[in-house]
């Protein structure tokens, strides 16, 4: 009765083939730039290209900016909704679903129409303005993941008791948020941050349509012009994604838990 079922193994093996073959193929392909032998030349070509370093740095900076701006928006909202304004919860939750419902290409199309040079807030006029717009677009993309991560973090700690305890000790709301709540949800916040980074770093559509020198746009360019380097780029970005997701798994083990109030 306790034996594994044969059909389960068959499906698992078929699935593994489908998911692992492209990874293996990409890896082998990326090493095959020289005829008849495996070499790392494609990787050296990619990494040494100034455009790679510039775009990667650019995307990393935008990613970090996205996380900071996102947290500034999401943490107070999630905290107040959980503690003092639960009647706003349906609205906030609906808003966090919007980026999943509206495709990114629609969002950026709207931005281009709304924040162009002839509008009230002509963000696309300057490089800085466009970078800001790109960051805000990524904040929108990351909103569902970030909100869920922060809200999950808040659920595992007793927000209300912590707040009341800090209040009695004389702390004001800002102090409570920064010194009491945030340190307790830092693990949840970090996992949201890594997910955001994984999404943002290779993003193509928005960056391309806003004409920003981002890593995704660079990768697409290389793909259109080279044969083996794209495979090397794919391997690199898979590794980055794995690292980011691995960090999330790792962080999950360190999540602090005070007795949560069951509500």
């Amino acid at each position: 009765m306790k034996r594994s079922k044969l059909w389960a193994w068959i499906i698992l093996i078929l699935g593994a083939l489908y998911f692992l073959l492209p990874l293996v193929a990409t890896l082998l392909f990326s090493l095959s730039i020289r005829r008849g032998t495996y070499s790392l030349d494609a990787y050296t070509n990619v990494v040494q290209a100034p455009a790679f370093q510039q775009t990667f740095t650019f995307s990393l900076v935008v990613g970090v900016a996205t996380i900071v701006v996102g947290l500034l928006i999401v943490v107070p909202a999630a905290y107040f909704v959980r503690l003092r304004a639960p009647q706003l919860r349906p609205i906030i939750e609906f808003v966090t679903l919007l980026p999943l419902i509206i495709p990114p290409i629609i969002l950026v199309f709207g931005y281009i129409r709304m924040y162009n040079s002839s509008s009230l807030l002509p963000l696309t006029n300057t490089a800085l303005g466009t970078n800001i717009l790109l960051t805000l677009a990524y904040v929108a993309l990351a909103l569902p993941y970030m909100y869920r991560a922060v809200d999950t973090g808040l659920r595992t700690i007793d927000v209300q008791t912590l707040t009341e305890a800090a209040n009695i000790l004389g702390a004001n709301t800002l102090t409570i948020l920064v010194r009491v709540i945030f340190p307790n949800i830092i693990v949840a916040v970090l996992s949201g941050a890594f997910l955001t980074l994984a999404i943002v770093i290779g993003e193509f559509t928005i960056a391309s349509l806003l004409n920003r020198p981002a890593f995704g746009v660079y990768m697409q360019n290389v793909g259109a012009n080279r044969a083996f380097e794209p495979a090397a780029l794919a391997v690199i970005s898979f590794v980055i994604t794995w690292i980011a997701m691995g960090m999330i798994q790792l962080l999950a083990r360190f999540a602090p838990k005070t007795a949560p109030r069951t509500d």
């Binding site: 492209p22 990409t26 993003e203 193509f204 793909g223 495979a231 780029l233 794919a234």
Partner: peptide
């Protein structure tokens, strides 16, 4: 995204 396309091309 882009890397997935590269993987399937490979």
């Amino acid at each position: 995204g882009i890397p997935l396309a590269f993987a399937f091309l490979s």
